[in-house]
């Protein structure tokens, strides 16, 4: 373990440990889980080679915590849905085992961010941010007005922001 990292994590813990516990308390099912997860966040940081320069340390901690908050059942349900989808699209090349872990991790994070949004808002946002479709194309595809698409985008961003950093 690098001493630089250890010192950095020590400072993060002293300055933002309480804040992170409060952040997790509002999201985790019980106080014990929140305390455990908060320890996990700092343990993960200790395992790193280096820490990036942090302008927004709390945002950085929140992003790590967000990944740890995703429960196992949810992850498994998503994996199941992903495998089914992959099977129904034979033209898509199946990713390697290593890629698969990365993809499922990213998907689980996205899934947790979008949870609670209306299906149309989710779909519009994913068409834009995953597929890179333009708003006029999305409006045409979903049969809604351009201003509805724009409103959906703002709503989705605000929602994700609140889940991740709010």
């Amino acid at each position: 373990m690098s001493t630089v990292v250890a010192a950095g994590v020590g400072t993060l813990y002293a300055d933002h440990g309480d804040w992170l516990r409060a952040y997790l308390m509002r999201r985790a099912a019980c106080p014990h889980t929140a305390a455990d997860l908060s320890q996990d966040v700092f343990l993960r940081l200790l395992g790193r080679q280096s820490l990036p320069p942090l302008q927004e340390p709390r945002a950085y901690l929140a992003r790590i915590a967000h990944g740890l908050l995703i429960d196992q059942r949810r992850r498994q349900a998503l994996e199941q849905a992903w495998l089914e989808t992959l099977a129904s699209m034979p033209e898509v090349v199946a990713p390697s085992a290593e890629e698969r872990a990365l993809i499922l991790d990213a998907l689980a994070r996205i899934d947790a961010l979008l949870d609670g949004l209306k299906p149309r808002v989710r779909q519009a946002f994913l068409l834009s941010r995953l597929d890179g479709m333009s708003y006029p194309t999305i409006a045409a595809q979903l049969g809604v007005s351009l201003s509805t698409v724009e409103k959906d985008m703002a709503r989705a961003l605000r929602h994700c922001y609140n889940v991740l950093l709010g």
Binding site: L107, R109, L113, L126
Partner: peptide, 22 residues
């Protein structure tokens, strides 16, 4: 930071979108 969560380089967009909807 929020937007970066959706930048999943190895993810096939269509598969991901359908799996998430499912």
């Amino acid at each position: 930071l929020v937007e970066q969560e959706f930048a999943a380089p190895r993810l096939d967009a269509a598969v991901g979108r359908v799996a998430l909807a499912k």
